[in-house]
């Protein structure tokens, strides 16, 4: 299992995963946080939330983030899957979550998650990562902070070059 790296105030550290990610076949654990695939969340999510459990949803790249627009206030995690690291759809999902839907919970990158994507993830609003390449938090942040400047506005608080130039 990849170790979870979480980002707080620009610092990354390994973190205990307070959630169990449940696949379509698994039984739902009796206690603790769970991350469910979308279809299963539709069936079991309300009951789990009513129990006071922490609930997250795992979205595949072809599942629109808008599907969750009415649920976001109750969700504490949205996990976005990268079946292949070349599949860039989840970057859009993350940005929409932060910028359009104002989601303040955890956005987690899972799947083919590599250090080379660290800055893309963070700039699009991800704050939790399950690196498949065994990256440490130090390696992760070194990659994420490789570029001293950025050119465009993302979901993070970095200033684009056109703002830096006049400030």
């Amino acid at each position: 299992m990849p170790k979870l790296i979480k980002l707080h105030d620009g610092h990354a550290a390994f973190a205990n995963d307070a959630y169990m990610t449940v696949t379509d076949e698994d039984a739902t654990p009796a206690s603790g946080g769970v991350i469910l695939p979308l279809a299963r969340y539709r069936i079991e999510g309300a009951a789990l939330l009513d129990e006071g459990r922490n609930v997250g949803v795992l979205l595949q790249p072809d599942e629109a983030i808008e599907e969750l627009s009415d649920d976001l206030t109750r969700l504490s995690v949205v996990a976005l899957s990268f079946p292949k690291f070349r599949d860039g759809r989840a970057y859009t999902s993350a940005r929409l979550l932060r910028e359009r839907f104002g989601f303040g919970g955890e956005i987690r990158a899972v799947g083919d998650v590599l250090r080379e994507q660290a800055s893309f993830f963070i700039r699009c609003g991800f704050d939790a990562f399950e690196p498949a390449d065994g990256s440490t938090p130090e390696q992760w942040m070194a990659a994420a902070n490789r570029f001293r400047h950025v050119y465009q506005r993302g979901a993070d608080d970095r200033k684009p070059a056109f703002v830096e130039r006049i400030s």
């Binding site: 860039g88 893309f120 699009c124 050119y151």
Partner: peptide, 13 residues
Amino acid sequence: RQWAAIHPEFSFL
């Protein structure tokens, strides 16, 4: 050119 340079959302199209 500048906007497109390592665009965070559009580098894995």
